[in-house]
Design a protein around this nucleic acid. Structure first.
Lengths: 201, 201
DNA sequence: CTCGTCGTTAACCATTTGGTTAAACCAAAC
DNA sequence: GTTTGGTTTAACCAAATGGTTAACGACGAG
């Protein structure tokens, strides 16, 4: 087993455990056992447990950024781009279930708020730049911050409250059909929003 | 100092600390120090640290339930009731900032998911019962689960991502004017949704 | 073959944690 | 004054944690 494999195994185990148990309760011994390596290797390869979280987030946000950038380049026009970005974002969360859990857990409280905020901010800033152009002259209360937070919140909350929704409906909220339905709903709400902006301009 | 005061002080300190640091990192020594009581009193009055969290959540959800029930009784008609409930929920989150932080941190990962899910579920079920009646015959993708999650997500995300929004806009997202603007936006989005439901029925 | 580098291991360590326990304290009732 | 019940205190404890360290093994280059 070479160093790259060892690193990947540790990252994979940490990802799973942070997503299940949260960072604070997960111990380096848990991670070592899950990844099948000696605990001291975590420190050899990553330094501290905090640094391991940093490495994990770094990887996630790099991939998310690529996915969103690719989505933006796929089609022209605001409405079409919104759909592509929504698909990309929702698909990313669906494929990386730990990511939502880790981020939602750490974005508003705990020791890693700044770590997460500083990585989320550029995404929001990009969204703002893009939406500001599109929403010029939008009616009151439909400025870019409001719209961005609304769209972001509709998507991320589905994943965050998945367990509530599962028990509420008796169905798997992460099944492909359920996710497709959620995407359709969000897109429709967004199109209502955009129609409102266009109509009142 | 009587027992009731002691309990309140412990609960207050726990509330603040769990909201700032998260449950797992907060120690009983932290709580004792913040509340100005001896650490053993936490166990005397509440049992385990987990039981303390339970007591805190119990108190929160009782109050939230009352606030929402009162809001529902204030006016008649779906649109008016939605506004009242939105106001009540947003005001509750604004006045209890720790609540959002604790709940958002524990609802999707960690050792207390079930504890939070079991308390959030009745709220969602109530919302479903109410919206199901109102949304009978709603168009595809506008069923109660979808609408409820959307409205809930728009509100809770503003509070969860407050720090991102603060750095994004350079303004305090929790200032009264900012919260009022958020409420207006959410209400407008909801009214667009309801108009869509009515118009397509 | 020797040396240097990298990755790995097993053992170690100081510190901290949630919870326990028995004694002390306090106020009210008798 | 004594007793009782409730509250509080100071000390204690076993277990666990993140991180450290020195030794070992493997491999490639000279």
């Amino acid at each position: 087993m070479d160093a790259t494999q060892t690193r990947e195994r540790i990252l994979g185990a940490a990802d799973a455990l942070f997503g299940e148990l949260g960072f604070d309760v997960t111990t380096t011994r848990d991670i070592a056992e899950r990844s099948g390596v000696n605990k001291a290797l975590i420190h050899y390869h990553f330094g501290t447990k905090d640094d391991l979280l940093e490495a994990l987030l770094e990887g996630y946000y790099a991939k998310l950024g690529e996915a969103l950038t690719a989505a933006l380049g796929r089609r022209k026009g605001l409405a079409a781009q919104v759909e592509e970005v929504l698909d990309a974002y929702a698909d990313f969360l669906a494929e990386h279930r730990s990511f939502t859990r880790i981020v939602q857990r750490e974005v508003a409280s705990g020791r890693h708020v700044e770590r997460v905020v500083q990585r989320t901010l550029p995404m929001f800033q990009l969204g703002m730049t893009w939406l500001d152009e599109a929403l010029t002259g939008a009616p009151r209360d439909f400025d870019a911050v409001q719209v961005l937070t609304t769209v972001y919140g509709m998507v991320v909350t589905w994943f965050t409250y998945g367990e509530v929704l599962r028990q509420l409906s008796g169905k798997d909220p992460f099944a492909p059909a359920a996710l497709a339905a959620r995407k359709r709903h969000v897109k429709k709400v967004v199109s209502l929003l955009l129609a409102e902006v266009e109509g009142r301009r």
